[in-house]
Amino acid sequence: MWDWAYTFEILPKLGWAAITTIQATLIGFVIAATLGLALALTRIAVPATAWIISVFVELIRSTPLLIQIFFIYFVGPSFGIVLDAFTAGVLAIGVHYAAYCSEVYRAGFDNIPRGQWEASTALNLSTWTTFRDIIIPQIIPPIVPALGNYLVALFKETPLLSAIAVLELMQTAKIMGSETFRYTEPMTLVGLFFLAMSLVSAALIRATETAIRRRMIR
């Protein structure tokens, strides 16, 4: 059933692929978190943009991520946007989750009492200082859990990148299986890796949450 020799043979290669998966996750999440924040801020700073941002967010959330990945990778070139598979895939994941993150930030901003903005105006703080020092530090603690959940969800969707042949874990395991006709070991290892990483990240997120709460909310 389980071939240990084969397991040890494929482990190093899977290890390398895992690094690609983690890179895709982290870069994708950085894009999602910053672009999401930018969308939410734009919406507040320029109310006229609110409807177009809403349409964009709805569009992204109502279509499958896989289609968006294909769109950027295969349709992009006809608009002169030629990206390698990794870049295109990570960008698609980042933008997809940015739509979700922007809603998290928006809820965070909505929960700041109006008095905080008014006190900032009365103290003559600039809009930028108000965001940086007053508003954003207050929205972070309540949104960490939601953003953390999206980080884990994003991580679990990176196997979609195998659809455009990015050599992340899933694609590597698939190739191994097709070469040796043994799928049990690579697929099991990949599954275990995702399980372990998800559990670890969930624990880390919870720890971060507690730490932030202890520091910021009195």
């Binding site: 008095g115 003559n124 207050q138 909310i217």
Partner: peptide
């Protein structure tokens, strides 16, 4: 011009963090 004016609110509005 606003720099010449300060205000205290009924609900304090201190920065909680």
């Amino acid at each position: 011009v606003r720099a010449k004016i300060g205000m205290v609110f009924q609900s304090f509005n201190l920065f909680p963090h």
